[in-house]
Design a protein around this nucleic acid. Structure first.
Lengths: 339, 339
DNA sequence: TATTAGCACTCGACGTAATTGAGTGCTAAC
DNA sequence: GTTAGCACTCAATTACGTCGAGTGCTAATA
């Protein structure tokens, strides 16, 4: 069957209406609301066709129709194409002056959740293959050494390493020089046994200390249990269709146990700079099969990226969400690439 | 009226039973369950007395009784006294080897939530009056300076300060020396205008840079929006009496908007090293008036403390909760004071 | 041929009894 | 002081009737 112009108009009218009300929409409503000037009977015939095409479904006989996943998909695809250039004018309230990365991200999640009324989550970028730019050791007191590591992209990590005595000033200087000479420009994989061996030989009497420090560095750099922040998870209670018995609980659980979500968010890789929409059953996570998930990728710099996602009911205000996300992406870009 | 031994036994039997089932408990149940060997009629008479004393209430005529806040209070006080020395043997799975503080705390919250099946939250200690122990400036690349500040208690803060040119090595050394000379041992309040003035004069040509750095330091130290982590917030869905319509939503909202909770958790100060129990209406926060909140204070070192809280239904397994908290407190003590 | 009006039919939602059963208080007997 | 028995209460559950939004089909109309 052909999806002609009129059918399309009716479909979008149905979807729009359903997004607003959350109630199945009947032929009479469309007949009155839209500017098609058709009787409800005609609409009924068309709706019957649309149902046959799998774009809308009836929750039960003698109820109105609601969009199917396929119907949403059509609508979203259309909208994405249409809105390609348009930018929503939401004022993002990120006051991002040199705040820490995770503060910015938390704030971003909050902004998104507040302005869309859906639940949002954002993952912290991974620095899998970051190189060491700079290492600094300092004796802070008689029993501990502070070790600061700066990675490409000015990611700073620091840790305390215990030691058993106070080192003379020149020893510290020497160790610093050594560490930087041997480790600068290397990433984690490249710090192998031979490098460590060399360092230890060179350090002679401080070889044990060097071991401790290297351990600390390694541990600190590996410490990348893909972190994520969520916000507005209680928003899902605003949508009755998600609020049924078990569903909301499962969703909240999934949001709290961010693991699955982050996995999903990374699955797609960073190829796509664009916006991804998963509708209902398209959703790879069981708990979210009654929802729509919209994700966008932001880039801190080449190869360092994270994702931000919005989770809401199928009847999500797609236009607003996409607009908000686009806007936020450009804000984040501005913040991260301002230098 | 006198609260004799038999009444007490009946009361605890009622409470225990209600903790298990969540249903109002009737005279017949007690008559059968407990080892008192009394008929339900006798129990009824006693229950009538207990009700008169305000220790139990009837949700409605012809329903069983449930403990009132006062009844819980009696029970908890008894239990706290009884269990004073006893330590629950929960194996805390904190593998705390030199992990970062916030990782430990997050983990602690999770352990508590998992093992009790209630919601938990933990606040990150504040370092309000911490003194600067050590400051280190390093030029990382031509346009940025890394500033590391170590506070009493080995709290490390760091930040990047932009600068407009590469500084000569000896300038950096001089600045470092200056900063440490002037700022060491001071806390935030003590870094006043006169100190800053002196520093800037001393720094002569780098006076602008010094300003930037001081700003960064100040900002970084002030950055103490009492943080908190929550875990297991979805657990509250396990208790039907909290799961009613709006209640759960409000609770979740309160848990997400940690602000109120952290306020509460700090209100009490750090005088009490012990365990606090707020039952129902005793709860200072509106949203939690249907819950019991149990808090405990942990100490990182003198004057640096945080609280951990467990939020659950009134019918909380008080013994388990108190045991678990006591145990965790001692674990944390072990971790923080091992050196 | 496409559109529309009209009508019978379906089925969830809602409101109002009727029924059930756990539990109580009271009284009289033990 | 304790217990058995009985009448009473009341939330919860079930059953049932009504309502109305919405459909599909058919016949009339443009």
């Amino acid at each position: 069957m052909e999806l002609d112009d009129r059918k399309l108009k009716i479909l979008t009218a149905i979807i729009r209406n359903y997004l607003e009300t959350g109630e199945p929409v009947g032929s009479r409503t469309i007949s009155k609301d839209s500017d098609l000037n058709l009787s409800s009977a005609t609409i009924r015939n068309e709706m019957s066709d649309l149902e046959e095409m799998g774009l809308i479904v009836q929750p039960h006989t003698s109820a109105g129709r609601i969009p199917s996943d396929k119907g949403y998909r059509l609508y979203v695809d259309m909208m994405l194409k249409e809105k390609e250039e348009e930018l929503n004018n939401l004022k993002v309230e990120l006051n991002a002056k040199s705040e820490k990365l995770d503060t910015i991200l938390k704030e971003a999640a909050k902004v998104i959740a507040d302005s869309t009324n859906y639940a949002s989550m954002i993952t912290v970028p991974q620095y899998r293959s970051k190189k060491i730019k700079f290492i600094q050791l300092t004796q802070v007191d008689y029993s501990s050494i502070l070790c600061v590591v700066v990675l490409d992209g000015n990611i700073i990590k620091n840790m305390m390493v215990p030691c058993d005595r106070e080192l003379p000033q020149d020893a510290i200087l020497k160790l610093n020089l050594m560490m930087n000479t041997f480790l600068q420009g290397l990433d984690m994989q490249e710090i192998n046994v031979s490098v460590m061996q060399k360092l230890r030989t060179e350090a002679s009497e401080y070889s044990a200390l060097i071991s401790d420090i290297l351990d600390a560095v390694a541990k600190c750099l590996e410490e990348q249990g893909v972190e994520a922040y969520t916000s507005g998870s209680t928003n899902i209670f605003k949508y009755p269709e998600l609020n049924e018995s078990g569903k909301a609980t499962n969703l909240l659980y999934a949001l709290e146990e961010k693991k699955q979500l982050t996995e999903l968010m990374y699955k797609e890789g960073d190829k796509d700079r664009g916006i991804q929409v998963y509708i209902g059953e398209e959703n790879p996570i069981e708990a979210t099969k009654d929802c729509t998930l919209v994700t966008a990728t932001y880039h801190l710099e080449d190869g360092v990226y994270g994702k931000i996602g919005i989770l809401g009911p199928r009847r999500m205000d797609y236009e607003k969400v996409v607009g908000t996300l686009r806007n936020l992406m450009s804000e984040l870009d501005g913040i991260f690439h301002k230098e």
